[in-house]
Nucleic acid binder design. Structure first.
Lengths: 242, 242
DNA sequence: CAAGTGTTTTTGTATGACAAATAAAAATAG
DNA sequence: CTATTTTTATTTGTCATACAAAAACACTTG
């Protein structure tokens, strides 16, 4: 019985899914591994088989497992995992060290976001531009670091929205995790956000002008700035959030 | 009772999840809509509540639904949907028309893949390069169109692998769907694949030389070629697959 | 009118019983 | 002795039933 593992919050099958999911992402059950069967999980966590099955259905839906009669549930190869799923990404994040998480999210953002702002510059509606401007304003008004991160997430989500491509939306989760993990690197109480806001403004200005090229380079600068923060303020004198 | 809807293949809860998932993606249940409760689903499809619940857990895991006691299951806003999930993407694909699916996947590829090949050029291991070369060979040897598509999918997956960024892996599903949807546009029995293979070779050559810039532009040409196919061979004289 | 209280609806959880699938072992045929 | 078929055992799949817990809503009461 692993009562300790039963995390606070939520119902049994969700907690179970989370616990098993975390253990898979942490590498305790490698791809190809045969998991304990349903009855055994029930014994291990002291829950009913119903709850176990529902948890397993959740994990199967996220591409982590594959169940077959007489076999059991096997961990799927990593390239089947829905890493851009909210939960899976969170489990992944807490399974690896902060620096390599930051490194791979930044690498991903560097691929995606310049393309996103180009699309946004070309295809944004007037309304989407307004939302973008409003997000900018929210960033300016933010008083605490969590507020700023929230506003920043809102900004990048508005960007994603403005790109008008549904297939790109799943990236919002990645950006959200990237930005809130960035929180780890901003130990100062009152970070200077002037520069970050300016960089964001540059992006919006270019999008307003429907200038894709300028928008792209502005976004690259913004990501460079974030990299600088992660690198530990070695290349910049003031800490910013982006 | 909607016995007709019970698609062939698979177990009850999977079929149910697929059916409900398709209906959501088709827009029958808009975001924010309250679905029938579990008992009702059971009556509608003539299955047990257990099966309904497992199906709902699957859909919830994919970000399509949110269930709460006394409320029921509500369809989540679109930006919560895991569109890059294998099943969801498939449902999405069959819910919209071919041309707009092709358009948005190509748009997405145009953002992602140039970045991917740059990473691959910089970070690929010797072994990953070998796999890439082998995929190329498989494309050359392919006799039927399905074989070619399979080999092509293998190639682009190898590319993704060579980029060495786990967060990019979920894109494999998108590329896979994009390429196999391309199948719709290749009505000819024996498409000329010479040009396509050459374009793929250019990419591999640049990656072998660790030349990121050349790799990027080679990939862009490759995607241009695919666009030409979709456009209906207006700008090219020979049909190719890519 | 406000605050708390109860009612009712829906999901959440547990248990028990079989069905179906299938890998592995055993029996059988060639 | 090998190949094929049959049996068996294990695990997931499915169903039915019962009760618990959460929470919106109506209602009562101060």
């Amino acid at each position: 019985m692993v009562k300790q593992r039963e995390k606070r919050g939520g119902n049994v099958h969700d907690r179970l899914a989370r616990s098993i999911g975390e253990r898979i992402l942490a590498g305790e059950f490698a791809p190809g591994t045969l998991l304990p069967n349903e009855a055994e999980w029930g014994r291990i966590y002291d829950v009913s088989r119903t709850a176990v099955r529902e948890a397993i259905k959740t994990l199967t839906g996220k591409g982590l497992l594959l169940s077959r009669p007489k076999i059991g549930s096997r961990v799927e190869p990593r390239d089947r995992w829905s890493l851009l799923d909210r939960d899976v990404l969170l489990w992944h994040r807490s399974a690896i060290d902060r620096r390599s998480f930051a490194a791979s999210t930044q690498e991903a953002r560097r691929i995606i976001e310049p393309g996103i702002v180009e699309l946004a510059a070309k295809k944004r509606s007037a309304e989407q531009l307004e939302i973008l401007v409003a997000s900018l304003e929210a960033m300016r008004k933010a008083k605490s670091v969590p507020d700023l991160v929230a506003a920043d997430v809102g900004f990048h989500n508005a960007l994603l929205q403005a790109a008008n491509n549904a297939l790109m939306m799943p990236f919002g989760i990645l950006i959200e995790q990237a930005l809130s993990s960035l929180f780890d690197y901003t130990t100062q109480r009152n970070p200077k956000i002037g520069i970050a806001v300016k960089l964001h403004e540059d992006v919006v200005r270019a999008i307003a002008a429907q200038d894709a090229k300028t928008a792209r380079s502005a976004m690259i600068k913004l990501i460079d700035d974030t990299d600088a923060i992660i690198a530990g303020t070695k290349s910049r004198s003031k800490w910013t959030i982006c």
